[in-house]
C-alpha cells in the first residue's frame, strides 16, 4: 500500500513537471535583432537619442497560463551610445550612470498579466543603485519559425524619471528628468 501511494505521488510529481516544462517556452534575447534605445529632452526643445549596445536577457513564455511567464533583461550601462564619444564618456561618470559603481541596468518581472495584443508586465527595475517597481505593456508575443529557430518578438515604450533613480538633481536641467525607453526585442529558441 505504501509503495502504491509513493508511486502515485512520484508519477504526479514527474507529470506535473513535464507538463510545466512543456507549457513554458524558454527564449534567449537575440542581440542581433533587438535594440534598447532611449531619448531624453534637451533644453526642453528637442530630444537626444541613444542606445545600449550590450544587452542580455531571457524570457519564459507560458502560453497556457500567461501569468507564469517571466521576463529578464540585463543592460551593460557602459555600452551607452549616443553617437558622440565625448558625451558617452561623460554619461558613464558618477553624475549620470556611474558605470564603475553600477555596471548593469536590470529588469526582472514579478507578475505578468495577459492583455489584448500582449502582456502587462510588472517587475523590479534596478538602475543607478535604486530599484523601483514598474508596470508597462509589452506588446507582441507572436511566434514564428525561421530556419529551424523559433522566434518571438516584443515591443514596449516606457517612461522613467531619472530623479527616481538617484541621479544628481543638479544635473537635471539641460537634459530633462524624463527618459523614454524603447525596447524592441526578439527571443529565440531551437
Amino acid at each position: 500500500m505504501r509503495n502504491y501511494v509513493l508511486g502515485i505521488a512520484l508519477a504526479w510529481f514527474i507529470g506535473a513537471n513535464v507538463a510545466s516544462s512543456r507549457a513554458a517556452d524558454e527564449y534567449t534575447y537575440d542581440a542581433v535583432h533587438s535594440s534598447v534605445s532611449f531619448k531624453a529632452r534637451h533644453l526642453d526643445i528637442s530630444w537626444i537619442h541613444g542606445r545600449f549596445n550590450v544587452v542580455e536577457g531571457k524570457f519564459s513564455l507560458d502560453r497556457e497560463d500567461p501569468t507564469q511567464s517571466k521576463f529578464e533583461l540585463t543592460i551593460q550601462a557602459d555600452s551607452i551610445d549616443t553617437a558622440n564619444a565625448a558625451r558617452d564618456e561623460h554619461l558613464r561618470q558618477p553624475d549620470y550612470f556611474d558605470t564603475k559603481q553600477f555596471p548593469t541596468i536590470e529588469f526582472k518581472s514579478t507578475s505578468v498579466k495577459p492583455i489584448e495584443g500582449g502582456y502587462e508586465v510588472t517587475g523590479n527595475f534596478a538602475m543607478h543603485g535604486k530599484t523601483k517597481k514598474i508596470t508597462f505593456p509589452l506588446m507582441g508575443g507572436k511566434e514564428i519559425e525561421f530556419k529551424g529557430t523559433k522566434r518571438v518578438g516584443f515591443s514596449t515604450e516606457l517612461s522613467l524619471l531619472r530623479s527616481d533613480f538617484g541621479f544628481d538633481k543638479n544635473n537635471i536641467g539641460l537634459i530633462g528628468d524624463e527618459a523614454r525607453i524603447l525596447i524592441d526585442c526578439e527571443g529565440m529558441r531551437k
Partner: peptide, 15 residues
C-alpha cells in the same frame, strides 16, 4: 581645490 577643479573639468561635477 585644484583636484576639485580638475575632476569637474573632467565631467564629474559632484565629485
Amino acid at each position: 581645490q585644484t583636484a576639485g577643479a580638475v575632476i569637474m573639468l573632467g565631467g564629474y561635477l559632484q565629485g
